[in-house]
Design a protein around this nucleic acid. Sequence first.
DNA 1: CTGAAAGCGCTTACAG
DNA 2: CTGAAAGCGCTTACAG
Lengths: 338, 338
Amino acid sequence: MITIKDIAAEAGVSVMTVSNVINHNHARVSPATEQRIRDIMEKYSYVPNMAARSLISKSSRIIAVLLPMWHGSTASMLRDPYAGQLAGYLEELLREREYYVMLCSFENAEQVLQVQRTWQMDGMILILPHEDPVTRELVQKTQKPLVVIDRRYDDLETLSVCLDDRAGGCLATQYLLKKGHRKIAFAAPSIYESSVIRDRFEGYRAALAEYGLTEREDWLFDNVSLQAGGEAVAEAISRMSDRPTAVVATEDLLACGIIKGCQGRGIQVPMDLSVMGFDDSMPARLITPGLTTVAQDIREKADQSVKMLMRAIEDPSFRNDHRVLGVRVKERQSVREL
Amino acid sequence: MITIKDIAAEAGVSVMTVSNVINHNHARVSPATEQRIRDIMEKYSYVPNMAARSLISKSSRIIAVLLPMWHGSTASMLRDPYAGQLAGYLEELLREREYYVMLCSFENAEQVLQVQRTWQMDGMILILPHEDPVTRELVQKTQKPLVVIDRRYDDLETLSVCLDDRAGGCLATQYLLKKGHRKIAFAAPSIYESSVIRDRFEGYRAALAEYGLTEREDWLFDNVSLQAGGEAVAEAISRMSDRPTAVVATEDLLACGIIKGCQGRGIQVPMDLSVMGFDDSMPARLITPGLTTVAQDIREKADQSVKMLMRAIEDPSFRNDHRVLGVRVKERQSVREL
DNA sequence: CTGAAAGCGCTTACAG
DNA sequence: CTGAAAGCGCTTACAG
């Protein structure tokens, strides 16, 4: 492998001068020398060894994209389409800034802190955070900048980028109310376990309250899993004598499941039941009827996260900031006007 | 930061002995000393600095997951759900073996070779390879082990893991033939540009030939994009006087688009038209009717790729091997018996 | 079983 | 504008 030493020898200068060229210390090298050195580097397509550089500089230009594992397994959550998209955008935005992206699934905070030191990482971005003590511990113990996406801590100094989930839940419900619906159900994986879902639920209640309505216990579908959950909701609704006319689901996949379940049970969507989703993921476009859903801008989320991280890397005093991104309704055909 | 030197000092041994403990050279350290050193490392939660290690060893335990960019943009293909899933499995399998995963999108071969040297990567896995000269150049020039997924080169020494796409196309078509269909269309993004699609098409023709049939030009839907492509196919079919009774699509998303297009044009699936997909991706389960499709085992693909890479890292003479994985039909409700 | 020395490829003060 | 020296944290032969 060709090193800085070889370049220096051929150029007839010291390694120091070559180092100054690499690091763009223009003031320290004459233009003529610089050009000569650049030509030689080009000729051998020399690239600096990052191991040597980071050994001295204590910085590697590596940013970790952190992913928790599926509960109770060592599986990577990257297979979740949302995670893939987000990671893709992050990679894109970090690459533009000449950072390297390391993918790290983890089970506990210590693993992350270790790998961070192992590579002297410059920063980390956590996606799909679980609602468990591990993430909290990580946020508290990290020495390097960490941006958490989709989770806020009111009592901790953190850098975070979230959606305005309350507004999202509210918007979805208002949309249905404006279409004339008054009997609106709510379906979520588990209403009380995640702050995100809690916020959406609060938004739902707030919107109902605006119209003088309150939620009905029997129209709250809590703790439905994503896989079969939607179908279970459809099944439950089909058995009711007093049915809701619409349902707000906190995730598109859940909404899709509900629609599929309805179709097998003679309930027409949207004629008999209107369905709102959340995310605007690919399946929302593919199913029939197209799913009306609360859309977020994932690229914007990635962009804000990277910008926040960059600022934190430059400014050690910048360790507490929260960004809340807006949402909007994407209309398709799963909601009917009453 | 705590270093090997600090550990050595506290244990009253040389740094060399600590190094031997880290590197599991059990023969070179007495059990008692080893335990003492381990305790001290634990106490300070010491982790070795990889930059220093790889500087000497010329190996970093970093594996690149390589992704080409979308043609004509700098966007990462990771947002493709298939890429995300595959990358997730790869991360999982590499992590188990104590490798680190770096995510690298690239436009040209030189970029990859540079970053490989920058980090002294041990190996690379290329996913979603384009059918262009860049990948070919990369395969030819790389000095380090490279496993290419989903693309084979008959004239180059490579490590590759592919699906048996010909068998897949054949299986899909045979399935329809056995259900009594004789008028079978074929839809693909672009039949002649990708070896994968070409193979599936060949399988389709071979299956038809078994029944003494040949393909009909007007039932070949070539060059349909994924987004609107499916709907365009449905539109074209709806205008035909002599319609096919079934269609083989080379991707689930395309198949979903066809189904959605049919539903808007009064064509019932599967009553009027049977549809076969390829991939068994999430939307296949979510749409109604459920999509009957050719399924592949993505985890197995990742597993074979990682195993191949590991062998190549250990054995420098192992640079030419090809693995072909089987496929099977996953039955749902989009195909009707005639 | 243990250690002293050299060196991996670079950068960082410090001189000139 | 340029260079000689020291050193980042580790491993690799080589002695003992």
